[in-house]
Amino acid sequence: MKLHIDNETSRLKAVVLGTAESVGKEPRLEDAYDPKSKEHIKAGTYPKEEDMVKEMEAVAAVLEKYNVKVFRPKQLKDVNQIFTRDIAFVIEDKFIKSNILPDRELEIEAINHVIEQIPEENVLRLPEEAHIEGGDVMPHGEYILVGTYRGDDYKDYITARTNMQAVEALQKLFPNKKVVSFNLRKSNTEPRDNALHLDCCFQPVGKDKAIIYKGGFLEEKEYEWLVNLFGKDNVFEITREEMYNMNSNIFSIAEDVVISEKNFTRLNKWLREQGITVEEVPYAEIAKQEGLLRCSTLPLIRE
């Protein structure tokens, strides 16, 4: 397989879509990785497997409608394998395995049947001290945009997933690209103030547009840099509540086609006004785990 990913929006040809089959029982509160899951565990509203399976199959159906080659992870018993974006990412023709939370290592093994189709020299792993997850990494033409957390208290945040060592490692790996990092707001307790990954507060869409949540960025100048990159008129600003509901975590099949959650009324209207076809799916149950459509997909080939 010849990988090719240079951006977030070119026509998608091949993708790994996660699976909600056999996700296991509801985690204990102390085992949850993010504040939104904790919120739903406490409230008794944590999502049920059968509802999440239906939501993911709706996405699979849309991808198949657009003739995208869809790979699925090998099913592991009682393991949550929904969020494939966390476990790896592709830049150019390189497949980079994430240095992920240690007890999620099995998830990478479950896509070995995909990895085996890639030339061995193109399958990479960053140095052990470089923590990284795919939700923080966005190829964007000459840039690689990376979410991180630069605070000295990095180790105190289970929600801080990508560190500056990873940013530096990416720059070494792709010397022809400009790697730009963004210091994201983190919270272990309040999901409305937690940008778990860059795609939880920002995402390019269409030819030259972007969705952004200002409050996800700790440094205003970094937020402004992104707005200037796209131009103010091309940026759709989402609210704190829309960020909490994961409005920036939609997924592009092409510059003129996106998959979005059906309840994102304001966003979906704006997307259509930009001439973009919006394929609406139900995804509100999966959103309870602080991830949405981009989180569930690992693109391998775009035109």
Results as ranks from 00 to 15, higher is better:
M1H: 07
L3R: 11
T9P: 01
R11F: 00
R11I: 14
V15K: 02
V15I: 13
L17G: 02
G18F: 02
G18S: 04
E21D: 03
E21C: 01
E21M: 01
S22A: 06
K25S: 03
R28A: 13
D31M: 05
D34E: 11
S37P: 09
G44S: 04
P47M: 00
P47D: 02
K48M: 10
E50N: 09
V53P: 03
V53T: 05
E55Q: 11
E57R: 14
V59N: 01
V62Q: 06
N67C: 11
F71V: 15
K77T: 11
Q81Y: 11
F83Q: 05
A88L: 03
F89W: 15
E92D: 15
K94L: 04
I96Y: 05
L101C: 07
D103N: 12
E105Q: 08
L106E: 15
L106K: 13
I108L: 10
I111C: 07
N112G: 07
H113D: 02
E116P: 01
I118N: 00
E120I: 12
E120G: 12
N122K: 15
V123T: 12
L124R: 05
L126E: 06
E129N: 14
A130N: 04
G135S: 14
V137D: 03
E142F: 09
Y143V: 06
G147R: 06
T148A: 10
Y149V: 03
K155R: 12
D156C: 10
Y157S: 09
Y157R: 13
T159K: 10
T159F: 15
Q165F: 12
V167Y: 15
E168D: 15
F174L: 07
P175G: 11
K177G: 01
K178H: 12
K178Q: 14
K178I: 11
V180K: 15
F182Y: 14
N183M: 03
S187Q: 10
N188G: 14
T189R: 01
E190S: 08
R192I: 07
D193F: 05
L198Q: 05
D199P: 04
C200I: 08
Q203L: 08
P204E: 09
G206L: 11
K207M: 05
K209E: 09
A210G: 07
A210S: 10
I211T: 08
I212T: 03
Y213H: 14
G215L: 12
L218V: 06
E219C: 09
E222C: 02
L226Q: 07
F230H: 05
D233H: 07
V235D: 00
R240G: 06
E242L: 05
Y244A: 01
N245I: 02
N245R: 13
N245P: 01
M246T: 03
N247T: 12
S248W: 04
S248C: 12
N249H: 10
I250C: 05
F251C: 13
S252R: 02
I253Y: 04
D256S: 10
E261A: 15
Q274Y: 05
G275Y: 00
G275L: 09
E279W: 08
E279H: 10
K288G: 04
Q289K: 12
G291C: 04
G291Y: 00
R294F: 01
C295H: 07
S296R: 01
L298P: 13
P299A: 11
R302I: 13
E303T: 07
